[in-house]
Design a protein around this nucleic acid. Structure first.
Lengths: 153, 153
DNA sequence: GGAAGTTGTATAGGCTTCCTATGTAAATTC
DNA sequence: GAATTTACATAGGAAGCCTATACAACTTCC
């Protein structure tokens, strides 16, 4: 470890760790759509935000191997969610881009997840809901910054 | 939708939803231990916190089907991480409990995740780190309640 | 300008973890 | 006590990941 943790730092990261575990369960199981995997969704989302990209670039971005990304892109192409073209500059490379159908699926997925989250939030007593949303408003920007600074294993 | 969301409620849940994908990537890929799956880890953790439980109760808790939980428990038993006993009250039921080896693995997993998290947290400015951990402490209980009250699809 | 190395993608084969459909034994109901 | 329900197990299959390896296009270097 390159950092020198203090005692309370350790305790703090315990709480953060617990939150991350629970949030992972929430994101992966309670909010997962059956029609598309997490990697597929985040890959589509990346292509939507950043434009066409190479297979190997996508694999690195998603933290999977290149063969896995090849397979994923093949599945996505079969389902009409992405298109593949050749790179004019480099005959070896494949440029993957999201299609309109892919964008539509992304939008539908977002809608459904938001709907389910709303349902879950609706079961909380109003006071707790208010507190949760307030705390979430503080927490999420910080988490985002943490994620962006995260090392790539 | 069965609940009637207010305007700000919708915005908040949108913010939550927006960060969940990134978060899931972090939790699932950057903090995942290769030796045990997310479901296995959260199941062990549940058993550790709540004592022995039935197969079907575990399946419902984890949001997987009963056959999947049967398989998971069989794998965990083969690896000596859980033990299976019969319910004295109900001859059909199986009571699953975590073993000392299971607890040891949980502790090791926690240690390793904490180590990685510490590295990530170490990249934050001290002020943000303090705020992040403080907010995490507030957020955790609320999140737990939300997950408990969550509808099972 | 061609041999050798590098890079980008595809294929093969295997593992884990989930699913649905269905079987079986214990408990409950009538 | 027969029929139903409940709790778990088994069978078979698919998704999605891996490592190892093959192949084709680009680059280097003499």
């Amino acid at each position: 470890m390159s950092v020198t943790p203090s005692a309370d730092h350790s305790e703090d990261s315990h709480a953060v760790s617990a939150v991350l575990d629970d949030l992972a369960v929430l994101a992966v199981r309670r909010l997962s759509t059956r029609e598309i995997s997490l990697t597929a969704a985040t890959t589509l989302s990346y292509l939507d935000r950043n434009g066409p990209a190479r297979l190997s670039a996508l694999a690195a971005e998603q933290g999977v191997t290149q063969p896995s990304m090849t397979q994923l892109v093949q599945r996505l192409e079969r389902e009409g969610l992405v298109s593949r073209g050749v790179d004019a500059q480099d005959g070896r490379a494949v440029l993957v881009g999201v299609t309109d159908a892919g964008r539509a699926l992304l939008a539908e997925r977002r809608r459904r997840r938001r709907e389910r989250l709303d349902e879950m939030l609706g079961t909380l007593p109003p006071g707790e809901l208010r507190e949760l949303t307030r705390v979430a408003g503080e927490f999420l920007p910080l988490l985002r910054r943490l994620l962006q600074s995260a090392p790539q294993e």
